[in-house]
Amino acid sequence: MYFGASASALQRLVEQLKLEAAVERIKVSQAAAELQQYCMQKACKDALLVGEPRSCALF
Rank of each mutant, 00 (worst) to 15 (best):
L48D: 14
F59E: 01
Q41G: 08
Q41V: 07
A22E: 10
M40Y: 04
K42I: 02
C56Y: 14
V14H: 14
I26N: 07
E24Y: 03
A22S: 13
G4W: 03
E52R: 13
C44D: 06
R54S: 05
R25W: 02
M1A: 11
Y2S: 15
D46P: 00
E24T: 07
Q11F: 02
Q11S: 12
L13K: 14
A32H: 08
E24K: 11
E34S: 02
L13H: 08
A57D: 02
Q30R: 08
D46E: 07
K27A: 07
L10V: 04
L48Y: 15
L13G: 10
C44N: 09
A5I: 05
Q36N: 14
Y38F: 12
L17Y: 14
I26C: 05
E24I: 10
E15Q: 11
F59S: 02
V28A: 14
E52P: 00
R12A: 10
A7Y: 08
R54F: 11
L35R: 14
S29E: 11
Q37M: 12
Q16E: 13
E34N: 07
L35V: 05
V23K: 10
M40H: 03
Q11Y: 01
A9S: 15
K45G: 01
R12Q: 12
A21W: 03
A43I: 05
R25N: 08
K18Y: 05
L19K: 06
K42H: 11
R54D: 06
E24H: 06
R25T: 08
L49F: 04
